[in-house]
Design a protein around this nucleic acid. Structure first.
Lengths: 148, 148
DNA sequence: TGATGATATATTGCGTACAATTAAATTGTG
DNA sequence: CACAATTTAATTGTACGCAATATATCATCA
């Protein structure tokens, strides 16, 4: 029996399970804002950048057009953003946050604190985790670039 | 501007992004076996337990019947498992691994090593990550039980 | 300039995920 | 023992997530 093929010896499984659970914990906090987790992180990009191409949102969130296009159309319908083609390059779609989208920022203010209370690890552990995860992501980015 | 609402200050986002990326890295390794990642972790449970209820698979994988029922039906169609009602309790569906399912175990033997090479973190870091993630999962389990 | 390749988004198809609901079987209780 | 409460799967509906493909636009250069 190959012990590496047991669930409890897998590193990737807790990563997968933990990520799912965190998203689940966000749901009741985001429900009053009418956002899903993916929409929430998209709003986070827009609260910071105000106006940004779908391509750049995808690079920041590691999501492709197959995920973003339908989601952003829903968010447009909800009045949080507008979509328009760039004049410089007609291929590019620019997403711009609306007043209504900006207003969600205040309503979201308490969410990071509530989540950190829910994820009961101390700040040193959180820092460790952050560092390790970003190291892995960096490595995946490098692998990706090597392939091109 | 609430800095906690910036992507780069979020702990949950690297967790979410990293988990997705890991699943993506698994895909080419699992493709020759005809498995998805979720099917792969289900097979891991079955390689170890041989025969187990859907309920217990769900507890081990943190998945509900809405996910498992259709997936296990596909795996039955693929000949990897059989499905049968328990004689003791007709509500319970028992999943049993088939010979064909057992044979996949050998073919999967190289996958953990290949993945560990792909995720280039050293064994001490891996241990840290494993510990932190399991601590978070434990905490979520506790929260869950408190609610009942 | 016109063919060719690259880029950005959209679309399609498939496979999860999960909440909410339904249906059947079992358990607990008066 | 009857019946309400619980448990287990299945079903339904919504929302990702990604590979593969299609389409339109842009860049390059012979």
């Amino acid at each position: 029996m190959n012990d590496m093929l047991k669930l409890r010896n897998q590193l990737c499984f807790p990563l997968y399970a933990c990520a799912k659970e965190v998203v689940r914990q966000y749901m009741p906090l985001l429900e009053p804002l009418g956002l899903t987790y993916t929409q929430y992180i998209a709003m986070m990009v827009l609260w910071e950048h105000k106006s940004i191409s779908i391509r750049d949102i995808g690079k920041l969130l590691y999501l492709d057009s197959g995920t973003l296009t339908p989601m952003l159309k829903k968010m447009e319908k909800a009045g949080l953003i507008t979509r328009s083609r760039s004049k410089d390059d007609e291929r590019v779609v620019i997403i711009t946050i609306t007043q209504k989208g900006e207003e969600l920022h205040d309503a979201a203010g308490e969410i990071p604190l509530k989540m950190s209370q829910c994820v009961k690890i101390d700040s040193e552990e959180a820092q460790q985790l952050y560092t390790l995860l970003n190291k892995m992501i960096e490595n995946f980015n490098t692998l990706q670039n090597e392939k091109l």
